[in-house]
């Protein structure tokens, strides 16, 4: 790998020869990557490159056909999906995935309560734990939804729902953030908001960002991986990747996006 990373960076998440086959289709073939703490790792590639599949494997939603996933040097590919979140691997979804009938605050409270405990307490009221509300509010403030905390999630705008999506992940206090196209379907101004948010977050967490908005990815990424047809094409700094002839070919060959 032509990655140049200074030695003091800690590997948070690592994949080794990760494969996912759907019958004969190789959705993901032999992917070995390292994701570092307090770095933003962008993943780009044409449609069907296997970016979402990779995220779904990293968060435990799918089980890999072969290969392993290491979190802090421990193999975790065999653990249950919910256990990924408990280890601090949080994800947001490409398609907005929230609790539309609950308030923004309640959405985040569900996330916070997982860590705070008491979820098996059938007697104590859910409305009495002030600390929980505070942490949930904090997460909302962080993404700029502080003013919307008591509004029902189905009533806020699409862009705000995308922000809420991220707030919910933050509320679980993760170490790793897996973000699946957080800017999908957003207008320019809304995207800008998310970009600003990610700029503040990328020095606090290990972030894996799958995104179609190339400008955003180039602006944000510390490292960049390009994937094509389920294969790993290259990984490197933004400049390295931008100048890689294979990358240009891959994109031009597809005929959609050009740098």
């Amino acid at each position: 790998m032509n990655t140049q990373v200074s030695l003091d960076l800690k590997v948070m998440l690592e994949t080794q020869g990760l494969c996912k086959y759907w019958g004969g289709l190789k959705a993901l073939d032999d992917i070995s990557l390292q994701f570092f703490d307090k770095q933003l790792h962008g993943i780009v590639g044409p449609n069907g490159a296997g970016k979402s599949t990779l995220l779904n494997l990293l968060c435990g939603h799918y089980k890999p056909t072969r290969g392993s996933i290491l979190h802090k040097e421990e193999a975790i590919e065999a653990i249950k999906p919910y256990a990924f979140a408990r280890r601090g691997i949080g994800r947001s979804f490409q398609k907005t995935n929230i609790y539309p009938g609950a308030t923004c605050l309640e959405n985040c409270c569900v996330a916070v309560q997982r860590r705070m405990g008491g979820s098996f307490n059938i007697l104590r009221s859910r409305y009495t734990q002030k600390v929980l509300d505070e942490i949930a509010s904090e997460a909302l403030e962080k993404v700029g939804l502080g003013a919307r905390r008591d509004v029902v999630a189905s009533q806020i705008s699409y862009g705000e729902q995308r922000q809420l999506e991220i707030a919910m992940v933050l509320a679980t206090s993760p170490e790793v953030l897996l973000l699946d196209e957080p800017m999908a379907g957003m207008g320019h101004e809304e995207s800008q908001l998310i970009i600003e948010l990610l700029k503040t977050l990328r020095r606090e967490y290990c972030i894996v960002l799958v995104e179609h908005d190339m400008d955003a990815v180039f602006e944000l990424s510390d490292q960049l991986t390009v994937m094509v047809d389920g294969q790993h094409l290259t990984t490197g700094s933004v400049d390295q990747v931008r100048d890689d002839p294979r990358v240009k070919e891959a994109y031009l060959g597809q005929g959609d996006e050009v740098f």
Binding site: A85, I98, Q113, R115, S119, S125
Partner: peptide, 24 residues
């Protein structure tokens, strides 16, 4: 009304998301 009830409501509304948040 309890915290258990909160998770039950969450599971009813969106089981996939509730798993992703770390609930069994």
């Amino acid at each position: 009304r309890s915290r258990f009830g909160r998770v039950v409501d969450a599971i009813h509304e969106n089981p996939g998301r509730t798993t992703a948040l770390g609930y069994n």
